[in-house]
Simulated scan of single mutants.
Amino acid sequence: MTCWETIGAYAFRSLGYGERLLPRSDFTLCQQFTLIGSGMIWNVYFGVLALFFGFFLANLLALAKASSSPLARKPAEWFIFLFRGSPLFIQFFLAYEALQMLPRAGITVLGITVETAWTTKAWAGALFVLFLNTAAYSAEIFYGALRSIPKGDLEAADAYGITGWARFRRIQWPTMLRLAWPAYTNEAIFLFHSTALVFFSGFPAFQQRGDALYYASYFADKTFNPFVPYPIVALYFIILTLILITIFGAINKRLNRHLPSNMGSKIRLRPQLIR
Score class of each variant (00 low, 15 high):
6 T>K: 09
9 A>R: 14
12 F>Q: 07
19 E>V: 07
26 D>K: 11
48 V>L: 15
48 V>M: 11
48 V>S: 05
52 F>G: 08
53 F>L: 15
55 F>L: 13
55 F>Y: 12
57 L>E: 05
57 L>S: 10
59 N>R: 13
64 A>P: 01
64 A>F: 04
73 R>N: 09
77 E>G: 05
82 L>P: 06
82 L>Q: 08
87 P>H: 06
89 F>K: 09
91 Q>E: 14
95 A>Q: 03
100 Q>V: 04
103 P>E: 03
111 G>P: 06
115 E>G: 12
115 E>L: 10
119 T>Y: 10
122 A>F: 01
124 A>H: 09
124 A>Q: 10
138 S>H: 12
145 A>N: 06
146 L>Y: 08
146 L>F: 10
150 P>Y: 06
150 P>T: 07
157 A>K: 03
164 G>R: 04
164 G>N: 08
175 T>R: 13
177 L>A: 07
182 P>Y: 08
182 P>Q: 08
188 A>G: 02
193 H>L: 14
194 S>D: 05
202 G>K: 02
204 P>S: 08
206 F>S: 13
208 Q>T: 09
209 R>D: 01
218 Y>I: 02
223 T>V: 06
230 Y>D: 04
244 L>V: 09
244 L>G: 03
251 I>K: 12
255 L>A: 02
258 H>V: 01
261 S>F: 13
267 I>T: 14
268 R>E: 13
272 Q>F: 14
